[in-house]
């Protein structure tokens, strides 16, 4: 665990007027992580991402990206960071190629030599290598998304910051992007993905941070969050006999739902052997783990885009 930090914030706070969008946030992303930044819509994810990249200025707190303070060192840091923030954007009247060429030329100290190759290579990388010269305004949502990702990858960044990268993609596209991100990560790129799609994060990430109403409520390795709960889930065609046998063995059956049982036990193989020895068939067997959804729902309040009317007394007080 002595890897360098890729992103670190301390006491990061942002007010828009009197609205506190992000509150005392301490992010800790290490190099080599695939970090999933989770939170409902409106929980402050995008504001945080924008602060990391120097687009929005923090009200207070410190940000360090790739070991340098942001936004002060933006000129040195940002060339090593690829990003996609709240959906892709491009100059609509130009082709995807022309867009990437322009974006490549904008970067400080960008060289003209090899620009064409860089652009073509990146287009290949995101599956747009064969795209024609039609303007971006005629692209489908999925193509735009791929182009946005290409713009982020253009300079072979050490850190990728992606906000909702699979928005608008079909299942095949989502799989492509996931494979691409894992491949990049295997090559040493740190990936920071923000999303409200739990399943996506669960399949991709090694570390997870959960944001709720501007506050970090969970930040942990995914493996730890998803540790076994100490229960075994099993299915049997003969649940009554199974319960009776388990009672005899002194195991507690904590849930019973038709032919499916949840049993407190550490070793699934041992439990299986016990039942089979007693002549009871087992056709399903798994170690129960908390799903990321359980973790997130337990840690967060109601959705961040619901604004229930507070009780009147409270309203008067504020």
């Amino acid at each position: 665990m002595s890897r360098d930090t890729a992103i670190r914030t301390q006491g990061l706070t942002k007010y828009f007027g009197r609205f506190e969008a992000v509150s005392d946030l301490s992010l800790d992303v290490r190099e080599g992580d695939v970090y999933g930044f989770l939170g409902a819509n409106g929980s402050g994810k995008t504001t945080t991402v924008r602060m990391l990249l120097g687009l929005v200025l923090a009200t207070s707190g410190e940000i360090e990206v790739l070991g340098r303070p942001m936004p002060r060192s933006g000129r040195e840091v940002l060339p090593h960071v690829g990003s996609m923030i709240e959906g892709p954007a491009a100059y609509a009247h130009l082709s995807g190629r022309a867009n990437l060429t322009l974006f490549d030329a904008m970067a400080p100290r960008s060289r003209r030599t090899g620009r064409k190759d860089r652009v073509e290579e990146t287009l290949d990388r995101v599956g747009l290598g064969g795209v024609d010269e039609r303007p971006v305004k005629n692209y489908s949502l999925g193509m735009r998304q791929r182009l946005g990702l290409a713009a982020a990858l253009l300079r072979k960044p050490r850190l990728l910051v992606l906000d909702e990268p699979t928005n608008g993609l079909d299942p095949q596209g989502i799989r492509d992007i996931r494979a691409l991100l894992l491949e990049l990560n295997a090559d040493g790129t740190t990936v920071f993905v923000s999303s409200h799609l739990l399943a996506e994060i669960e399949q991709l990430c090694t570390r997870v941070g959960v944001l709720d109403r501007g506050r970090m409520v969970v930040q942990e390795e995914l493996a730890v969050l998803r540790a076994p709960t100490g229960r075994i889930l099993l299915g049997t065609p003969d649940p009554d006999a199974a319960i009776a046998q388990l009672d005899r063995l002194g195991r507690s059956v904590e849930q019973h739902d038709g032919r499916r049982l949840a049993v407190r036990a550490a070793d699934a193989a041992e439990l299986n052997a016990e039942l089979v020895r007693a002549g009871i068939g087992v056709d399903e067997l798994s170690v129960e783990r908390r799903s990321l959804e359980d973790v997130v729902l337990a840690a967060t309040s109601a959705g961040n885009d619901t604004f229930a009317r507070p009780p009147r007394a409270v309203q008067d007080a504020s």
Binding site: R75, V81, I85, P88, A89, M106, A107, A151
Partner: peptide
């Protein structure tokens, strides 16, 4: 409005 400003600034363009 086109959304390109944020991508220009993170290139980074001062």
């Amino acid at each position: 409005a086109a959304g390109t400003l944020r991508y220009v600034l993170v290139r980074p363009v001062g």
